[in-house]
Design a protein around this nucleic acid. Structure first.
Lengths: 136, 136
DNA sequence: CTGTATCCCGGGGGATACTG
DNA sequence: CAGTATCCCCCGGGATACAG
């Protein structure tokens, strides 16, 4: 069996998470991808991939995030199973956020994209500049 | 030199695209990542990774995208250098969209995330369901 | 210290109609 | 066929104030 045959499965079908007639509206892959679409999701994943952090540490680490969005993004990441929230019943209370196994697994994939962006952001910048120049 | 030393470079620093005191506000990696944050960007990249498509073909391929967002998303992807737009001066005119080398390179990285999503969306779904159950 | 609760604004994104 | 143009709505996300 030619391995190219395998590759004939449409990348769009892979995206849809199903082959052929699947309804694109509610497709599982899109749900997952959009969970990372927030302004701060991937950044916080990168931070927590480094080590567990407390709430205040994260806030200092990412100075331009609002308290509201930090809470909400962590909440969303926890909901999707990427982040574990551990409360220490001290006074005043402290909370530690860390990646779950699922979160580390997901970041392994996300990391490729981040590394690509680091290596190629110059090319993207130039593409934008060139494109904008012609549109002027 | 211990290879673990290399890994000591903070994943957050990698994300910032600079080490240490970089300003997180305007960091190149974030710019690139957010270029893919749109609702339709990654989906269209997946489609065009398969093969070049004409405008109308894409619209039929993704029935739930509005004409406006298809135009705009393709425009944005072209601006970032991922997509090439080729006009055939026929009557009526036809336009073909395809990935550039940069686009194919970027999709190579994005593909990891899409594949991960396909393999693990069940786990994410369950995490969400479990989380929502406790919050009820 | 770690959050909610409100208020508010800008922009992403849908529906529809019109043009080359 | 492949777009623009316009209108409009919703919600992501910031600022601020309050609470356990």
């Amino acid at each position: 069996m030619d391995s190219r045959i395998v590759n004939l499965r449409s990348k769009l079908d892979v995206y849809k998470g199903m082959t052929g007639g699947g309804n694109l509206a509610d497709c599982p892959v899109r749900e997952v991808i959009q969970g990372l679409n927030g302004k701060w999701s991937s950044l916080l994943m990168a931070a927590l991939a480094e080590q567990p952090y407390r709430f205040g540490e994260l806030r200092r680490l990412v100075p331009d995030i609002s308290q509201r969005m930090l809470t909400q993004t962590l909440h969303d990441l926890q909901r999707d199973g990427y982040v574990h929230r551990k409360v220490f019943p001290t006074k005043p209370p402290s909370v530690e956020y860390s990646l779950t196994d699922l979160g580390r697994s997901m970041f392994g994939a996300l990391h490729h994209l981040i590394q690509w962006a680091e290596l190629n952001h110059d090319a993207v910048r130039q593409a934008r500049a060139g494109f904008d120049a012609t549109q002027a």
